[in-house]
Design a protein around this nucleic acid. Sequence first.
DNA 1: GTCTATATAATGATAGAC
DNA 2: GTCTATCATTATATAGAC
Lengths: 229, 229
Amino acid sequence: MQSAASPQWVRSPDDLTARARLRDAAIDCFAQRGFAASVREIAQRAGVSQGLIRHHFGGKDNLRAECDEEVFRRFREIKGEGLAMSPGQAIGMLSQLEEFGPTFVYILRSVLDGGVVGRAFVEHLIVDTELFMEQAVRAGTVRESRDPSGRARYLVTSALGSMLVQLTLSPEIDLSDVGNAIQRLTGAFALPSLELFTEGLFVDRSMLDQYLMQIPDPPAAGRDIHPPA
Amino acid sequence: MQSAASPQWVRSPDDLTARARLRDAAIDCFAQRGFAASVREIAQRAGVSQGLIRHHFGGKDNLRAECDEEVFRRFREIKGEGLAMSPGQAIGMLSQLEEFGPTFVYILRSVLDGGVVGRAFVEHLIVDTELFMEQAVRAGTVRESRDPSGRARYLVTSALGSMLVQLTLSPEIDLSDVGNAIQRLTGAFALPSLELFTEGLFVDRSMLDQYLMQIPDPPAAGRDIHPPA
DNA sequence: GTCTATATAATGATAGAC
DNA sequence: GTCTATCATTATATAGAC
């Protein structure tokens, strides 16, 4: 386990093997310009020729797969194994780390792209959130849910999705300054979300009660398909 | 104003001008395969040659622009001018209309893509939601907010974003059956969202009160940037 | 290991025949 | 109005020299 100030994967470029330098250049490119970035572009950023990429990785798909792996590895490493954080805490912490910038943007892009990293990232967040909420419920700070899994999935997808929609709505946000970008994406929603989480939205319970009466089986476990596939 | 069962823009393909048929084929293609769909593909679906697209539209960008316009026109037409619906009602209604399928998927893709239709669509929903919530507050069914604009923006982006994230998480969902797709995307979240909107999440008010004391100015109007740009 | 040069495929743009 | 044929560009994949 590394200190947060200088994780294992941050070192001077000279220390890296050519293969790793190529992979990191690809991660940066994919983060900045999306997965449509060409191999020529990646090679140029790494200061080598495009032929070398094929030599080391065989093709773009393979290169992307290795980037996916590395990015998810970094995510797991930074997050820490047993550390259960709320999604807000996690995102807030991650965005503070300068070195994590490209990794985080890579993940966001992968979520939008439907890539494997994105999926894994979201599912990971959901599991963590369910655990975190479970603890919070036991601690008495968060209300119990009739469907803990569904609630965790709902909280994560709406928080993340909200950021992504805001992002597409605000092309002027500079993704290279990740900390600032996250601040802009989440700052505007601090008050509305706190308000909603504390006071709810509806004045009375009729909508919820109506729904609960309408469904056939006891409202203990989720009756709906939660896992994607 | 047309009846919902058969809007103005639904007719047998023979009734359409070649230009309109081409445009509609493009909308279908963009919806099904994304905006990377080639002009050859579009021409093939329309049963004409690729040269004809250039003849009528000049180029792909222009064609996309006309598709954007048409899709947004259909959206406005279906929605109705003065009709204020909740986001949930609106999405539920739209998904029922068979003919609206490609249009709806086109809009979703446009949101993900950051396209003009997507932006306009979201901003439209936000304005409608704010109006709707204003009425609901006056009617006594929804609680007052310290930041009505921010709340509307938060509700729309999180509801929509949640669907989009679920969509990327579930590639097996068949987008051609829009009604079913929406059902799968929203059904799992009915209970968690109703629960949250009715009962909130936190047991006590400490988080909210802490935030309210921390910010300098009176919590009447939003102190943050809400409009994207 | 690294480079240069080339093959191949796809796409959007264009020209000109009918 | 509509089609066919071709061009220019760009991307990846590949081969072979050093």
